[in-house]
């Protein structure tokens, strides 16, 4: 992890050589070392500690979610290229023999699988909204949740900061437009201070999601025009194109309308989330402070391991 070289391949190679990540044969799918996991665990504790005064309700959803929920969320309208549905074999013995035959011939046996009720979770907060809507009206002071989940996005890449399966920790505020905007503001401040306390260079910038196609270009322009998404960027594999490690998203009443999330008076709720890309933050720490976490600057170690 030479301080001067900032490119994806040399960082990935160095992570493999130092036994921090392990190859799986698929780009974006890696094993993690104990040292890497320890950093993630400590960073998660830091996030929880910073959010503790807000008294969020913690929920951990599994990395798979209801496919029907994903469909209703509108995810396929915006990001069909990133989604992953779980398929399984549901045939009988005859089809099984056919499947093995196809496999032996090197054919595409997967056509004998059918879609299950599961999709892979694309962002930690997707399973939350219908769960909360089912509990009835949202109280006037709003609701706050802390979530963590493995997430999947189909974007194979040699960039170690663009994994296909990665963890996201999130705080989600559901409330009035004013409540969720001030929640986002407070995390824009706290997030930056947190990353600076880890002695990482960062900047916060207006951003957009990778919406699909030409229509997506328009969605992205709309998102930027309305200032709905900000990202905290840290140089990890490139100085010119730093990596988004935290994101701050205001959904307006999109999920409120989609899921019927309402206050007792029938008004639709707004929502916002702040997401922490856990692997990305860990990679940034290894990138800037070196492969041996025990040799990181004392101040950084103190923030992560001191408490």
């Amino acid at each position: 992890m030479d301080a001067k070289t900032f490119d994806s391949k040399s960082l990935l190679d160095s992570l493999f050589e130092n036994g921090i990540l392990f190859e799986s044969g698929v780009d974006g799918l890696y094993g993690r070392s104990g040292a890497f996991e320890d950093v993630i665990e400590r960073f998660e504790r830091l996030v929880t500690r910073l959010g503790a005064p807000d008294k969020a309700t913690r929920i951990h959803f599994p990395p798979g979610m209801s496919r029907a929920t994903l469909e209703k969320s509108g995810y396929m309208k915006s990001f069909p290229q990133l989604a992953g549905c779980v398929h399984s074999f549901m045939g009988g013995e005859r089809e099984h023999a056919q499947l093995l035959g196809m496999m032996a011939d090197g054919g595409d046996w997967t056509e004998l699988q059918k879609a299950t009720d599961l999709a892979l979770t694309p962002a930690a907060c997707y399973p939350l909204y219908p769960t909360i809507a089912a509990r009835g009206p949202v109280p006037a002071q709003g609701l706050l949740f802390e979530l963590s989940s493995y997430c999947f996005r189909h974007e194979p890449s040699k960039d170690p900061a663009r994994m296909q399966l990665f963890r996201m920790r999130e705080f989600v505020k559901i409330g009035t437009a004013e409540q969720v905007r001030s929640f986002r503001e407070s995390w824009l401040k706290r997030g930056r201070a947190m990353i600076e306390s880890l002695d990482l260079p960062c900047e916060v910038d207006l951003a957009n999601d990778p919406f699909f196609g030409r229509g997506g270009r328009m969605m992205a322009n709309n998102q930027r025009d309305q200032g709905l998404k900000f990202e905290l960027l840290i140089p990890v594999t490139s100085i010119e194109k730093p990596t988004a490690c935290l994101s701050f998203n205001y959904h307006q009443d999109h999920f409120g309308q989609t899921w019927g999330l309402k206050f007792a008076d029938g008004e639709f709720c707004h929502s916002a989330c702040v997401g922490f890309g856990l692997e990305r933050v860990a990679l940034a720490l290894f990138r800037h402070h070196g492969p041996d976490a025990e040799a990181w600057p004392a101040a950084v170690r103190d923030v992560l391991w001191g408490v």
Binding site: G215, M218, Q223
Partner: peptide, 11 residues
């Protein structure tokens, strides 16, 4: 008009 509907409109 939602963002998604505006895309449908464009198409």
């Amino acid at each position: 008009l939602t963002s998604f509907a505006s895309v449908q409109m464009m198409l």
